[in-house]
Amino acid sequence: MRALAHISDIIIPMLIFFIVGYGYVTKVKVYESFLDGAKDGLRIVLEIVPTLIGLMVAVGMLRASGFFEMLGRVLGPLTERVGLPAQLTPLLIVKMFSSSAATGLVLDIFKNAGPDSYAGMLTSILMSCTETVFYTMSVYFLAARVTKTRYTLTGALLATLAGTVASILLAARMV
């Protein structure tokens, strides 16, 4: 654990050191290149600002309305039968839209059930093996100015489902 935390501490400075050092040694105009790239980066962020506002407002409103809690209460008894504790159902749904909102729910579960409980272990694995489906789709497709997303959603949901089933099977063996 210590070693791992240490690696994640040093990886970014090392990466920056390596890129700048390598560029300088190979006689690239490092500073000018940096400025060009940074300018391009700012342009990209500027283009996704409206998407982020739209998406975060929708998620925020839906969360405040109590919809996710209701969903957890209604679906909870059903999902518990397939090994998914009731408090994880809202997490599964929220995670498709926003990773920061999902993190809030994860910390809730860790606090109430403990990270080493079945629910805690399952949460840990689940969060590690899938991404925010709708967030990623809307931000990336906006960059390409695409509105007809074809089979992306089906594939993304299929991958998420595979990850979820795998997590349930694995978590049961861990605790």
């Binding site: 940096f34 790239g37 940074a38 990209i44 962020v45 925020g60 409103m61």
Partner: peptide, 30 residues
């Protein structure tokens, strides 16, 4: 609140993305 949060997220992100894209440009040219 969410609309405001989105903007503060973008401000944080703008710095990070600009930094990374700058480094990437160096890596690309090298």
């Amino acid at each position: 609140d969410s609309a405001g949060e989105a903007i503060s997220l973008c401000i944080t992100m703008a710095g990070v993305v600009a930094l990374w894209m700058g480094l990437m440009e160096i890596a690309k040219r090298a």
